Simulated assay, not measured.
Amino acid sequence: MAYSTVVVMGVSGVGKTTVARALAERLGVPFAEADDFHPPANVAKMSAGTPLTDADREPWLRSLGAWLGEREKEDSGGVMTCSALKRAYRETLRAGAPGVFFLHLEGSRELIEERLGRRTGHFMPPALLASQFADLEPLGAGENGAVLDVQPTPEELVDRAIEVLAAR
C-alpha cells in the first residue's frame, strides 16, 4: 500500500486518538496528536469551557497541515488526530497536504456523551460537546475520505480503516 497521510477526525470522544495511534502503528508511519499543536491560549480557553473561534483555530490548522505536508513530501505517510469539524478546516489542512485522507469517526450523541463522562485527564470538557456537534459538517462531495461508525472495537475500526485505505 502506498503511504498516505490520514487525519482521523470527529467530535471529542469518538476515539480518534485510540484509533489513530493503532492505525499509525499498523501502517508503520509517524503519529501526531493535533491537540499537542494547540498554543497555550487555546488550551486555556477550552479548559475554561469556552469554544475556540475560527480565528483561534487558523494558525493551529496551518501548523497541522504543515506537519502532514512534510510527511507527504518525505513520502513517509503519517496519521494525525484532528476534529476537523468544518469543511473549511479540512480545506486548510489540504492546503498543506493535498493528498490527505479524512477518516471520519462518528457515533450517536448519547454514546459520545457516555464516553466523555468516563474520560479523565483531558482539557476538553464534556460541556463543549454540543458546540462540536453544532459545528460538525460531514464529509462532502469531492472530499477524500470515508466515514466509520464507532460501535465496533478499536481493533475492528483499524481493520476497516486499512481496508478503506487499500481500496482507494
Rank of each mutant, 00 (worst) to 15 (best):
A55Q: 15
L64C: 10
H104F: 13
P138N: 09
V8N: 01
T153A: 15
Y3Q: 12
A141S: 14
M1K: 08
V19G: 00
E58R: 07
K16N: 03
G10W: 01
G117S: 10
P125I: 14
F102Q: 04
T5F: 02
P154F: 05
V158P: 00
R26L: 10
L103S: 06
Y3T: 15
R71V: 06
S76R: 08
L165N: 04
V7K: 00
P154Y: 02
M80R: 01
E91G: 12
G96D: 13
A88M: 12
A134T: 09
L93S: 05
E106W: 10
G121H: 04
L93T: 04
W67T: 07
A2W: 08
A2V: 15
V14M: 14
N144H: 14
L148C: 04
E91K: 12
G142R: 07
R109G: 09
T17H: 03
M46Q: 10
M124G: 05
P138K: 07
E143Q: 06
H122P: 03
D75H: 12
V100Y: 01
E72T: 09
F102R: 02
K16Q: 07
A161S: 07
L61K: 11
A134G: 09
I112K: 00
F31V: 03
V29Q: 00
R109T: 11
Q132M: 11
A34K: 02
G13D: 08
P40L: 14
Q151F: 10
I162T: 11
L116T: 09
S131F: 07
E137D: 10
L129M: 11
V29W: 02
A48T: 13
A84S: 13
